[in-house]
């Protein structure tokens, strides 16, 4: 792991490797390389700043200057700090002792909520043997209900839908009643995409939360997101205090620095990775692999 970073840093430090010692200037240069790599990977500007500051301080503090094999030391410090940033407490779905366990999906338009709703249903059926219902609470986006009916049906979940004429909050409440009656273990509530600055729709999301009292609120974040990811996560956090993140579209070639940034800024764990359009392309998230990918230069 971190071979690529290692190589890049070694190349940066090539001129001093012969001498075997590092000067303060060499460390500065290395920090510039790391900074660029992280920004290129869409890690948030502020997160990058803090990160490089910490690493720089540790490099100086560790008396690397003048030591043998200093390049290795720098890599080791970067490695450790990055793991600390990505890792920490890893989370899981919280199951309620009194089913159904309710999971509320939220996120920006097109981030992958509806797809993830079906994928998570399939995942929980397979991993936990749960019987799952899904609720169609997106009444705005054309054919959103049809979409959930199809993908929910494909994974064998019961789809609770009432078309598009009722209020999403009412549909959510009704779906929960139905799921209880049907003895479901899990109810996953799909919601419409919304901007974190859309007051009306953020209010609606809060009302859905109040109506179904979810045990888990998951924010679906597109892995291709840039610097705005932090804004989005902070504001969804402020509105509904979500519990964890699903990173979607990780089958692309984006480095996914948004993942690291959301984790760093909100402290919320990334629980799942969505890695394709097929409904079984869904897995637990591995922070170490992600860290490697972000620095894969």
């Amino acid at each position: 792991m971190f071979d690529a970073l290692s190589e890049k840093l070694q190349a940066t430090l090539a001129d001093v490797r012969g001498r075997g010692t590092l000067t303060e200037d060499d460390i500065k240069k290395a920090m510039r390389e790391i900074r660029l790599a992280l920004l290129e990977a869409d890690v948030n500007f502020k997160v990058v700043k803090e990160f490089t500051n910490t690493v720089r301080e540790r490099c100086m503090g560790a008396d690397i200057v003048g030591q043998l094999n200093p390049g290795q030391q720098v890599v080791k410090i970067v490695h450790e700090e990055l793991e600390a940033l990505m890792g920490g407490q890893s989370g899981d779905i919280v199951f309620s002792p009194r089913p159904p366990t309710v999971i509320l999906m939220a996120g920006l338009q097109g981030s992958g909520k509806t797809t993830a709703t079906a994928k998570l249903a399939k995942f929980l059926q397979k991993e936990h043997g749960s019987s799952v219902g899904v609720a169609a609470c997106d009444v705005y986006r054309p054919a959103a209900v049809d979409q959930l009916v199809k993908v929910g049906g494909q994974v064998g979940a019961t789809v609770y839908e009432q078309g598009t004429d009722r209020d999403p909050v009412d549909i959510a409440r009704w779906a929960l009643d139905q799921a209880k009656q049907d003895g479901k273990d899990v109810l996953i509530v799909d919601t419409s995409g919304r901007l974190h600055v859309d007051e009306k729709l953020m209010e609606e999301l809060k009302n859905i939360r109040t109506a179904v009292r979810p045990h888990n609120i998951l924010l679906v974040v597109d892995a291709m997101t840039g610097q705005d990811a932090v804004n989005v996560a902070e504001q969804f956090g402020a509105a509904v205090n979500f519990d964890g993140v699903i990173m979607s579209k990780l089958d692309g070639d984006a480095r996914g620095g948004a993942a690291l940034s959301v984790k760093a800024v909100t402290g919320k764990p990334i629980l799942f990775a969505s890695t394709g359009e097929k409904l079984d392309q869904f897995e637990r998230f591995h922070p170490d692999r992600m860290a490697q990918r972000i620095l894969g230069m």
């Binding site: 920004l39 290129e40 869409d42 097109g110 597109d222 291709m224 997101t225 840039g226 990811a229 984006a254």
Partner: peptide, 11 residues
């Protein structure tokens, strides 16, 4: 191109 897209948008 989604305007929330980061550096991957260029690719």
């Amino acid at each position: 191109v989604d305007s929330t897209t980061g550096q991957n948008g260029l690719r």
